[in-house]
């Protein structure tokens, strides 16, 4: 029998069968690991999102679950499969937080945009996930970049503003945002996502814009 086994190893089927078998075994192991950790990973992601929303409105987030329940109201538009968040403190409406997303240079950029209750002004912007080049486009997560959007008018009258990009060292005007040196595509992507998603959101909630 020994010889027939050696013979089989020499046939051209052996590598194919070996590869199929070993792939099945390893995929099986990976699938097991994936399902074992899936719930934990998702739980963390949800918690992380809640914390980000709380931070956008400067709410305390030491006890995420309680604080979230206290300050944030989730609103789901079933027909569009879209959820956004209203921040309320002592029954005063502080603002709205919209999840936004769009394509960056290498992959999807997702972010949270907090605006005033009348939607005219940006309160804060937070990047949730991105796959931009680390050290270049990845810098869209840096505070100086995100902070530029704070208190900027995004809707004036009936116009949704598309921010203009300027080089890092120049002084900026109201509708201008400093782009990241060496990562103009990623900077451009963030600005486009803001504009496109604001238009989409405006039409979802029935805001009349030009």
């Amino acid at each position: 029998m020994g010889t027939s086994r050696t013979d089989f190893k020499d046939t051209r089927f052996y590598p194919v069968i070996f590869m199929i078998l070993i792939t099945v075994v390893f995929i099986g192991v990976l699938a097991t690991f994936y399902y074992a950790t899936e719930e934990k990973v998702r739980g963390y992601q949800e918690e992380n999102l809640k914390q980000m929303i709380l931070k956008l409105f400067d709410f305390p987030s030491d006890n995420i679950r309680e604080d979230y329940q206290k300050y944030i109201i989730e609103i789901t538009l079933d027909e569009y499969d879209y959820s956004f968040y209203r921040a309320v403190q002592d029954s005063v409406n502080l603002g709205i937080c919209f999840p936004i997303s769009g394509s960056g240079l290498w992959g999807t950029i997702t972010a949270l945009l907090a605006v005033t209750p009348d939607m005219n002004e940006i309160i804060a912007l937070e990047i949730v996930s991105q796959n931009e080049t680390p050290g270049l486009g990845g810098r869209i997560t840096e505070n100086w970049f995100k902070e530029q959007f704070r208190n900027k008018q995004i809707i004036i009258g009936k116009n949704i503003i598309k921010f203009e990009l300027i080089p890092e060292e120049e002084k900026q005007k109201d509708n201008e945002v400093k782009q990241i040196t060496g990562a103009s595509q990623s900077s451009k992507a963030v600005v486009s996502i803001l504009y496109n998603e604001m238009r989409k959101i405006a039409s979802l909630i029935g805001f009349d814009y030009e």
Binding site: V29, L30, F33, Y34, T37, K40, V41, Y44, N48
Partner: peptide, 12 residues
């Protein structure tokens, strides 16, 4: 991938 999953789940 196993390392990645472990980090994601336990050291996010």
């Amino acid at each position: 991938i196993i390392v990645d999953l472990i980090l994601k789940a336990y050291f996010p």
